[in-house]
């Protein structure tokens, strides 16, 4: 049986079809949950962020015009909610500087991840600033182009490229340390 396209499900959800909305959630909840884990560094915050993101998406559903891919629109909202999450968590700190405390947050939570490489990825990402994490997440895990990422984050493509390049330097160090 053919799967319905995102736009068809969105259209039905806009008309009040609860089933279509739940189908959309089912289609993207894992991607958003993993996004939450990598962005926040722990599963509790990831679950909260996921719920927050889907509530926000539902509230904004009426404004979705189908101009671009639904996935891009969804991750744009996810990014805004994630920034909001960090602002609430650390209101005094700039998002460019905000770095998770790896040792405190990651260790107990990632017992849930059985794959060592996945654990290393999450740990490595927690050493990045939130702004760098967002770029790495969208580039490596969702395969958006730099132009698309720039559009989603409301930045210039050059800024996005610089952020990724500087993030790679940090990731390199961490992976080296992890591999050592």
């Amino acid at each position: 049986m053919f799967e319905k396209r995102d736009e068809q499900l969105v259209s039905k959800a806009q008309e009040g079809d609860k089933k279509a909305w739940f189908m959309l959630i089912k289609r993207y909840e894992q991607a958003i949950y993993h996004y939450g884990i990598r962005m926040t560094g722990n599963t509790h915050d990831a679950a909260d962020l996921m719920q927050d993101i889907f509530i926000s998406v539902f509230k904004s559903l009426a404004s979705y015009r189908g101009d671009g891919a639904f996935k891009g629109w969804l991750f744009k909202i996810a990014h805004y909610r994630c920034m909001e999450f960090y602002r609430r968590k650390r209101p005094q700190q700039s998002l460019d500087e905000c770095v998770e405390q790896v040792a405190e947050d990651v260790t107990p939570e990632f017992g849930l991840l059985s794959d060592e490489l996945s654990k290393q990825v999450v740990v490595a990402m927690q050493n990045l600033s939130v702004a760098q994490k967002a770029v790495v997440e969208l580039k490596f895990f969702h395969h958006f182009t730099f132009e698309e990422i720039a559009q989603q984050l409301g930045l210039s493509a050059n800024t996005v490229k610089s952020r990724l390049y500087s993030a790679l330097s940090k990731l390199k160090l961490d992976l080296e340390v992890d591999n050592a």
Binding site: K18, W21, F22, I25, E29, Q30, Y33, H34, I37, T43, A47, M50, Q51, F54, I55, V57, F58, K59, L112, L113, S114, D115, L117, S118, Q120, V121, A124, V136, F140, F141, L168, L171, L175
Partner: peptide, 24 residues
């Protein structure tokens, strides 16, 4: 390496959560 690691990232099951809370 990171690109490969991202592709092999473990698919963690999503915990049960209240989806109805997103429906208004």
């Amino acid at each position: 390496q990171f690109s490969l690691a991202a592709e092999q990232f473990e698919k963690m099951p999503v915990p049960a959560w209240n989806k109805d809370s997103t429906w208004f």
